[in-house]
Computed example of a mutant assay.
Amino acid sequence: METVLEIEDLKKYYGRQGNQTKALDGITLQVMEGEFLGIMGSSGSGKSTLLNCIATVIEPSSGKIMMKGTEIHSLKGKKLAAYRGREIGYLFQNFELIDNLTGRENIMLPMSLHNVSDKESSKRLSRLASYLEITDVLDKFPSQMSGGQKQRVAAARALIMDPGIILADEPTGALDSRNAKTLMKKLAGLNQDENATILMVTHDSNAASYCKRILFIQDGRIFHELRRDTPDETQQEFYDRILKVMSQLGGGSANVL
Rank of each mutant, 00 (worst) to 15 (best):
S61G: 08
G34Q: 09
Q218L: 14
V4H: 02
Q235H: 07
I166W: 00
N255T: 11
G189F: 04
L138Y: 09
G220Q: 00
L10N: 02
K11P: 00
R152I: 01
E33K: 15
G15K: 12
T234D: 06
E8N: 13
Q20Y: 02
S62D: 12
A208D: 05
S43E: 12
S247P: 03
I217V: 14
G34C: 08
S117V: 04
I27M: 03
Q93A: 11
P142G: 08
N19V: 11
L80G: 10
S112F: 09
T182N: 07
H73I: 02
K140R: 15
G18F: 10
V137I: 12
Q17R: 14
I88F: 05
K123E: 14
E87N: 15
Y131T: 11
Q17S: 13
Y210E: 09
N100A: 07
E87Q: 15
R152N: 04
N179A: 14
G147Y: 07
I107T: 10
A23Q: 01
T56W: 01
I54L: 13
F216Y: 05
Q151D: 10
A208S: 11
D99M: 04
S253W: 08
I166A: 03
T102Q: 01
F95R: 07
N115V: 04
D169F: 08
D193H: 14
E59D: 13
N106A: 00
Q235K: 15
D232V: 12
G38K: 05
K76V: 04
T49R: 01
M67R: 05
I39A: 00
K140C: 10
A158Q: 01
S112A: 09
G44Y: 13
D176V: 11
L5N: 03
K185D: 11
V153D: 03
T56H: 06
D139E: 15
P60R: 12
Y14N: 03
Q192T: 14
D25I: 04
L24P: 04
T3P: 03
Y13S: 01
L97R: 09
E35Q: 14
L243V: 07
G147A: 10
N94L: 10
A207E: 04
F36W: 04
S143V: 13
G69T: 02
Q151T: 09
S117D: 15
T234L: 09
P231L: 10
I58T: 15
Y83P: 00
N191S: 05
T28C: 10
H73A: 00
N255I: 09
E35P: 00
Q192I: 07
R152C: 00
K212R: 12
L75E: 04
T172R: 01
V31W: 06
D25A: 13
L24C: 06
A156P: 06
E233M: 14
L226W: 00
G189Q: 02
D139M: 09
G18E: 04
Y131L: 14
V137S: 00
K244P: 03
A158C: 08
E33A: 13
K186F: 08
R84T: 03
E237Y: 09
L97T: 05
Y14V: 06
G148N: 12
K78W: 02
V245T: 12
H73E: 01
D229L: 11
S74M: 07
G103C: 05
G147H: 07
G38Y: 03
V4T: 13
H203C: 02
N100F: 12
T102C: 03
